[in-house]
Simulated scan of single mutants.
Amino acid sequence: MAAAAEGRIPHYFLYGDQSADVELDFLHIEAIRERSGPHDWRIRPHSHPDHMQVLFIRDGGGTIRMEDQTLDIHPPAVMVIPAGIVHQIDFHAGTDGFVVTASLGCLRSTSVGEPRFEAAAARPAVYPLEGTGLNIPAVDDTFTWLHREFIWSAPGRRTVIIAQYMRILVTILRLSITRDDPGSAAPSRDYDLLVRYRALLETHFREQRNLGFYADALAVTRARLNAACNARADKTASDLLHERILIEAKRYLVYSESSVAQVAHLTGFEDPAYFNRFFTQRVGMSPGAFRRQLHRSRQ
């Protein structure tokens, strides 16, 4: 896997675009070949901090690496890449389909009245469509129709685009339920608190804040925050904080050429030795050993 330039993992709205798109706060769709073809069908490691993606793979296939897991793509398939997930895609030459990139604001507004859409969109996954019971031609038609409306400037364009995007969210919700059958529990106060805590972590996890800081910011006690995390994530609030730090550390170890000391600094540790102990205790190996193991596995 190619390392990111200058030790930094690129952040894009659309892959390779450094500037904001004209509809950055809305939604974009394009054929996979339009961007992947000119890049020799390889999308190198990057993430979209404020946008999530849904891809429909009609023909072709390949592999996608999301964080430290590699998944095969067997078309027809739908892929979900949540906001902030570092990913790399190696398509087979000539792969056909569409990629939809939507802002988190668009996702949230489309999910009003059905919060499970956001939960489904937050789960990185590759869903083969064969054998799911879904109407595959209808899924194909949804992406094709969205692409047509995106290109045209016909009356009612925005409304139709949102309607087709909602159909896509329904598709990934049903696929996520079919895959694991997690049930359809209604959102609760615990869920809401967990979501707000995760959002707060994204802003402050590099600052070495203690649990009291997060509880105060959320206007709850530490016990209440822990209870919500245990109820909805089966982990303590501290576990989630440490997990988020480790995810970021692993990203830099896997996707960049930064030294272990630099990774420590990038994840908020002033003392690289303390970072080494923190990482080793929770991963079972040192940062250097973790990097070497992953490099060997890719050879």
Results as ranks from 00 to 15, higher is better:
G113T: 05
M1F: 08
E202V: 10
M79E: 07
I64S: 03
A215N: 01
E270F: 10
L225K: 06
E207P: 04
T221N: 06
V80R: 00
A125M: 11
L200F: 04
A227H: 09
Y197F: 15
L200M: 13
T132Q: 00
Q88C: 08
S176V: 03
R282A: 08
N276Q: 13
R33C: 10
L240K: 01
R174D: 12
A228T: 07
I32M: 02
S259K: 05
A77S: 05
T203G: 11
D90A: 12
D181T: 14
Q262F: 00
G61F: 03
V99G: 03
A289V: 06
M285N: 07
H28G: 07
G7N: 02
E202N: 15
L246K: 03
I89S: 04
P187M: 10
R198Y: 07
R189V: 11
R35W: 11
G133Y: 03
P10K: 09
D21G: 15
L146Q: 03
P287S: 10
Q164N: 11
G131I: 01
T236Y: 05
I161K: 08
V195L: 10
A20P: 08
I85V: 13
G60E: 01
D216F: 08
I168V: 12
E270H: 14
R198K: 12
I89A: 02
A4Q: 06
L193S: 00
A138M: 11
G16C: 12
G7E: 06
V139N: 01
H11K: 13
Q281M: 12
V170C: 09
L193V: 03
V260N: 13
L175I: 00
Y15M: 09
G97K: 00
D17M: 12
L146C: 06
H46I: 07
R209K: 14
D180P: 04
R65W: 01
G133F: 02
S238P: 07
T267C: 14
I57P: 03
A217E: 10
P272E: 04
E149Y: 14
M166Q: 13
R209I: 01
Y214K: 06
V86P: 05
V86N: 01
S297H: 11
W41H: 02
P155N: 08
R282L: 15
D216I: 08
G113N: 06
I64C: 03
I162V: 15
H48D: 00
T221M: 09
G60F: 01
R58H: 14
C106I: 09
A261S: 15
H11G: 11
Y127H: 08
T142W: 06
A185G: 13
